[in-house]
């Protein structure tokens, strides 16, 4: 049942993306940026999904610390890893856009810097997990670190408000200048990426469960 739902989610996501790519390709060019601006239809949803993944990781980490239930720990790893993949895509697409529009791959403004820091922190989270053997200790320490790392996320989100950054202002809140039908396409892409993220997180979650099964089988093998 779970497999079927995930499969349907994946197919729906791919369907929306395929239809939407076609629609986006037909959109007119933006006056100053030409067609390069169309990267935004992937860049922004990726970052929104990454933010959501970080939020889920935070909630799961808090859940683990409160209940000591390893399901929460598995959820935290799964969503952190998928979020890290999305963050990587967000950084790379943003960088390619910057190469065309700014003429440089990277600039150290508050948005880009804090986003990179976020990436490093969540990569550090995965490294920290690798460095600890004992499962309970690993889950506890990783959850604590995840809570610490999350404090950077609001800084990333609000950095464009707090400082004058080279990164463009948001398209939605505070006077975004995005035409409604473009927003419409952005939203559809957003939904598709979200579904994709859910599918990947669920698959990763199941792998984490399989890993725990392996651990218990190993213990049984030792006991025999």
């Amino acid at each position: 049942m779970r497999d079927k739902i995930l499969f349907v989610f994946g197919v729906v996501a791919m369907g929306i993306l395929a239809w939407n790519v076609n629609a986006i390709a037909r959109l007119p060019e933006e006056t100053q940026q030409g067609v390069t601006f169309k990267i935004i239809f992937f860049h922004v949803p990726m970052w929104m999904c990454a933010t959501m993944a970080a939020t889920v990781a935070l909630l799961a980490s808090v859940g683990f610390l409160v209940t000591k239930n390893f399901k929460f720990d598995a959820a935290a790893v799964a969503s952190t890893e998928v979020g890290l993949a999305f963050t990587t895509i967000g950084l790379v697409t943003g960088s390619i856009w910057g190469r065309q529009i700014w003429g440089i791959w990277w600039t150290w403004d508050a948005r880009l810097t804090s986003a990179l820091v976020c990436w490093i922190l969540y990569a550090g989270y995965l490294m920290l997990r690798k460095a600890i053997e004992e499962p309970t200790q690993r889950a506890t320490f990783a959850a604590v670190f995840s809570i610490f790392a999350f404090i950077d996320v609001p800084i990333v989100v609000f950095s464009i408000k707090w400082w004058r950054t080279q990164h463009p202002q948001p398209v939605f809140w505070s006077g975004g200048s995005f035409p409604p039908d473009w927003t419409h396409h952005l939203m559809w892409n957003m939904l598709a990426m979200l579904l994709l993220g859910i599918v990947m997180t669920a698959v990763r979650l199941r792998q984490e469960e399989a890993q725990r099964e392996i651990d218990s089988l190993r213990r049984m093998a030792h006991a025999l």
């Binding site: 804090s114 820091v117 922190l121 550090g124 920290l128 800084i155």
Partner: peptide, 10 residues
């Protein structure tokens, strides 16, 4: 250092 310096960046 892997964990502290990135957190300290802000």
């Amino acid at each position: 250092p892997m964990l502290t310096y990135p957190i300290l960046v802000p």
